[in-house]
């Protein structure tokens, strides 16, 4: 019983964490919280199922194509919903534009795909019970993703350019960095990371149009817990959320589990207002 709670808790946690990283990746270069993050996760599952089950493509084609399609959605988001409202960030109009795009994605999926959850293929036929691939795949994907991101950000020139833009947009532009291109690239990257969340968690979450809202919601929590823009924090926050949520599902039942999750979340935030791993507030004067 404990094995199953821990396995599913870690798996869901890893998916939430990946969505959290998706939020962070978009936020870093644009200072925009894009509500398309969860929809990207949903599309990862739907595209995976569409390509591999309906069209019969093998994994080696299905996965890259899914990532590519979601990266495309990410780029479109940047052009349609982010770029036009960057000028007036403090009006928070991006909430509206990104939500509108999220709603467009969700409605098209509901009508053209299905309103019922559809199957997602088994990928490797590996493991059973608590070690079933559906549990460890998201965790492994999360580990690989964060390692790759750390490598990108710390070891490569383009990664450092990302960091520079994230740190100080104006300074980066003054240095001659192609800030706009980097932003588009980060949205493409976020699309792919969101797709990975949905794809690796496809067997758990199924290819279901309503997953978008769910992931939007619970993917935001690791971001807040870990501190805005902090990917390592998002992973710890995500895994903690997954474990706590599944344990709460079991102990207090489905109705009050989300109450328990949010009560704890609010208490934690009030104790640590910048998130558990966020930087302290910068000096104001």
């Amino acid at each position: 019983m404990f094995a199953s709670i821990i396995a599913s808790g870690l798996a869901m946690g890893a998916i939430y964490a990946l969505i959290g990283i998706t939020y962070n990746t978009m936020f870093a270069t644009s200072r925009v919280m894009s509500f398309t993050a969860g929809q990207l996760g949903m599309l990862g599952g739907v595209f995976g199922s569409l390509l591999m089950l309906r069209l019969g493509l093998p994994l080696v084609l299905g996965l890259p194509l899914t990532l590519l399609l979601c990266a495309g959605v990410g780029i479109v988001t940047e052009f349609v919903a982010v770029r036009p409202v960057l000028k007036s960030l403090d009006q928070h109009l991006y909430v509206l534009t990104t939500l509108a795009v999220a709603l467009l994605i969700q409605q098209v999926t509901a009508i053209e795909w299905s309103t019922e959850p559809q199957p997602f293929p088994r990928l490797f036929e590996l493991g059973r019970d608590a070690w079933d691939e559906k549990y460890w795949l998201p965790v492994a994907t999360c580990a690989v993703t964060i390692s790759a991101l750390e490598f990108l950000y710390r070891r490569t020139l383009i990664g450092r350019a990302f960091l520079a833009v994230a740190e100080d947009n104006f300074a980066a532009r003054a240095l001659g960095l192609p800030e706009r291109t980097l932003r588009v690239a980060s949205y493409a990257m976020a699309g792919a990371i969101g797709a990975l969340a949905g794809f690796s968690g496809g067997q758990l979450l199924l290819a279901f149009f309503a997953n978008g809202q769910l992931l939007n919601f619970y993917g935001f929590i690791p971001v807040a817990l870990g501190g805005l823009g902090n990917n390592r924090g998002a992973i710890i926050g995500g895994l903690a959320l997954g474990l706590f949520q599944q344990a709460a599902n079991f102990t207090v039942g489905g109705i009050f589990a989300s109450v328990a999750v949010f009560v704890l979340f609010i208490v934690v935030l009030l104790v640590a207002p910048q998130g558990l791993f966020g930087a302290p507030a910068s000096r104001r004067v």
Binding site: S8, N249, G254
Partner: peptide, 14 residues
């Protein structure tokens, strides 16, 4: 008696 969140990924415990 249980009310399970339909999105709960794993029903083993219940």
């Amino acid at each position: 008696q249980a009310n399970i969140d339909a999105t709960q990924p794993d029903m083993t415990a219940d």
